[in-house]
Design a protein around this nucleic acid. Sequence first.
DNA 1: CTGTTAGCGCATTCAG
DNA 2: CTGAATGCGCTAACAG
Lengths: 404, 404
Amino acid sequence: MAVTLADVAARAGVSAATVSRVLSGNYPVAGATRSRVLRAVEDLQYVVNGPASALAAATSDLVGVLVNDIADPFFGIIASAVQSEMGDGGTGGGVGGQKLAVVCNTGGSPERELTYLTLLQRQRAAAVVLSGGAVEDEEHGEALATRLRRLAASGTRVVLCGRPPLSESPGAGTPDAEADAETEGQGEVNGTGGTAGRGAYEARPNGNGAAEGHGIVTLAFDNRGGARRLTEHLLALGHRRIGYVAGPAERTTTRHRLGGHRLALQERFPELLDEAELLTVHGGEYNRASGYDGALELLRRAPGMTAVLAANDTVALGICAALRDQGLRIPEDISVAGFDDLPFSADAAPALTTVRLPLHEAGARAGRLALGRETPPPGGMATVRAELMVRASTAPPRQGAADR
Amino acid sequence: MAVTLADVAARAGVSAATVSRVLSGNYPVAGATRSRVLRAVEDLQYVVNGPASALAAATSDLVGVLVNDIADPFFGIIASAVQSEMGDGGTGGGVGGQKLAVVCNTGGSPERELTYLTLLQRQRAAAVVLSGGAVEDEEHGEALATRLRRLAASGTRVVLCGRPPLSESPGAGTPDAEADAETEGQGEVNGTGGTAGRGAYEARPNGNGAAEGHGIVTLAFDNRGGARRLTEHLLALGHRRIGYVAGPAERTTTRHRLGGHRLALQERFPELLDEAELLTVHGGEYNRASGYDGALELLRRAPGMTAVLAANDTVALGICAALRDQGLRIPEDISVAGFDDLPFSADAAPALTTVRLPLHEAGARAGRLALGRETPPPGGMATVRAELMVRASTAPPRQGAADR
DNA sequence: CTGTTAGCGCATTCAG
DNA sequence: CTGAATGCGCTAACAG
């Protein structure tokens, strides 16, 4: 049906091999021949057969990007950044060397995550980027780690972007012990997306050097540190009863952010820790509804609360809506803060205090790492810094409010 | 290197053909043999070689989804919906029949759009979904139409979601003439995402029946109608000087929305049309910055303006920010309205009046159409209805404000 | 129900 | 520099 290499060869009066060489470009071909072939290609509207090419060459130009929710700007930005690194950089007309970034929406489901990895392995993908927090299920963690290692072993580059290294999940020891270890993370990445090798990395001893040695690279987000700084900011303003609408349970991101919050409390006002449990609700998703419902629940539980932290900015917006509906003013009556610094946060009314994660930069770096265009950080892992963004949604509590 | 079908066959003591049959499942195989093969597959951790399979079967399980900006929730929601239709529906463990939806970010660039189509054609994609407004460039329109028709002719299903049918661009006649023709669109889709065949479609004579006959299906959004109703709402409130921050120039979406706005003016208050030009600024992108800058520019041009319409909700947020920064209250001093009804719009402060596009439903339908799981609407095209959502950001103008 | 036989379209040896 | 030959791993007829 479709036109093949042989057709082009016939029309150009050369052999199929020559056409192949002209098209791949990595082999000397006489100028005259080349242009004759090119014309034939043009005339026949020939398009390479990807599968055949991949089969013969045993390589593919697919790069898979797994995201938990493609409708969430958090992932959209990362995916977009990864993809922006795939092109051959120029307007060079040609499609050569072009990788095809394919983004796969797992919906946060472990099964779909595995399914997509299988699909990508089937396609012999050149690389796979897993983005966003991982599900903390012992069994799934094991299965995932196994599959990723197998992928890596078979030559597919694997990059973890915005999730902790593989070694954290299946390892022995209590989760909290591991968590504490990560707290120290001072590793930092400058967000400039500069050339390979630039930027200040801080290597950290990798929990499972052997495993990561397969070439699995991790770009972790400093969720814990960011959350800690955010809570410190609230404490410094004078808040003592701080509500927390957490993200989905059993997710590394949720645990780390909540952990950072608790850590700040513990360090500054250990006596607040007891009440922290009461002041924490677990929203189901990273959406406005869980923020809205969570805020209402918190209001019921602790009317004296003077500030609310959200799992992320989207949740924070839901919280704001609920508080407003209850007749509370932000930040006069109650402070609210988010996480991630998604684009809309700066424009919210009031502008949202939050923690900025350099999503684009991280995604771009993940893309370069996936293509092998940047040397991996020492130890195969770097932590991306989270920056506190103080805006208008947080202020000192009203006089006496903290005393109920 | 990797384990192949033959390896599995050897281990199971059967022929390669049998293994293939077991794996594809669409052929009778004895129960005992089947389980023996399955065990061998398990033991060897065999994963089908996608390219080889695609080559031999001359089909692929890739479905391409082209979006203008993956970081924009508008496209994220559509892509997510398309992808949600790809699975085999169940937790059936298997990966059989699973299609891989790959979303490709064109960034709104015609060249990248073409490049991705080539890449997808290379991969012999099973289907391609193009989402969002098209660039209105004669030459590109031609090239795009040609390539899409070729794709369709070669068996790849092509679905246009949220953009007008191919026939509109390359056709003869003035753009305005075509535009007017579309104004009448009463075609409507109920947004329930129901079973194939359900829902109320209204066929419209297709401008280019022959071309679309290749099987290119179009799901157009009623941008014009939505914009018209929105402007009518503002006029009914008493607004007469209505600013408009339009989207990127040379895009069908921009033209249609602006067209609907003008149409409403023309029908109700033709005398306002003269000033409309002055009250329109063209933002560069669908982002907060163009809204912010656009609003400032409008304020300079027409201080007496009592309402501002935005290219979409994101732009509207930028507009709100600018107006607030200028000390204007919304909606007391000035009304603002968006378009699309993205998730954050209902939670904005004040809640945004906008036009709701059933993005998820449309995307899901596009996905079903792409898989051939739903019969195309008559004429190969349906128009998705846009619904006016009146919320808190619009109100009657202040007394005397309209008189400058 | 199962094995055998041919290619699918291309990239790569290996000779010229 | 170019052509001929081989096989990538799998599916699809065909026979048994």
